[in-house]
């Protein structure tokens, strides 16, 4: 039997969730015995080369590229997991959601106290992703199967969840592990 395949990505996130993933430490060695990695920043595979069993999504969607990638993941992964607060609720990037996007761009590129842009150049190259009106949590863009809370999710929790999914065993989720308040 071939190994289950995992893919991961970071959308509008800070890579903190991926760092926490690496914090499973020596269990990484156990993990690569159990699974194969496909598209992921961990191995730098840029495009899906296979249908995956599990997709871990860090971050929400703040631009059109995020949406595109998230949809790609949905197409290519059997199980999709919102991995950390930003994927689940938009997190810190979503703090802009109450401010009109016009004001955000103006402050970032024109009027901010640390901004020097005398020629008033605005990022409008066609190659660039387009900015969305607000930051969307992943489950508002595609169907998500699981939510893994935390900022970032605790390394033990990540390990336990992957372990349970891969080996198809029940998982214990004591209150302390998923309570963040």
């Amino acid at each position: 039997m071939s190994k289950p395949i995992i893919a991961t990505t970071s959308l509008a996130g800070c890579f903190g969730c991926h760092m926490s993933f690496l914090d499973i430490d020596d269990r990484l060695l156990d993990l690569i015995e159990l699974v194969e990695f496909n598209k992921s920043p961990i191995n730098d595979i840029k495009n899906f080369t296979n249908v995956c069993d599990i997709g871990l999504i860090e971050g929400g969607c703040c631009n059109t590229e995020n949406i595109h990638i998230l949809k790609e993941f949905r197409k290519n992964c059997k199980i999709l997991i919102s991995f950390g607060e930003c994927a689940i609720m938009g997190g810190l990037p979503a703090m802009r959601n109450d401010v009109p996007v016009r004001e955000c761009l103006e402050e970032a590129y024109l009027s901010g106290p640390s901004t020097v842009n005398e020629e008033r150049i605005l990022p409008n190259d066609e190659e660039l992703p387009m900015i969305l009106n607000r930051v969307y949590p992943c489950h508002e863009v595609v169907k998500m199967d699981y939510h893994l809370p935390g900022c970032p999710p605790n390394a033990d929790l990540i390990w336990d969840v992957l372990h349970a999914l891969i080996l198809d065993v029940n998982i214990e989720l004591p209150y302390e592990v998923i309570k963040y308040d």
Partner: peptide, 22 residues
Amino acid sequence: VEFDSGIDLAEAVAESCEFVDR
């Protein structure tokens, strides 16, 4: 339909594109 995001992408990017003239 099992899932519908309800997001209108053209509408979602309209304001930012207008601001940067794109």
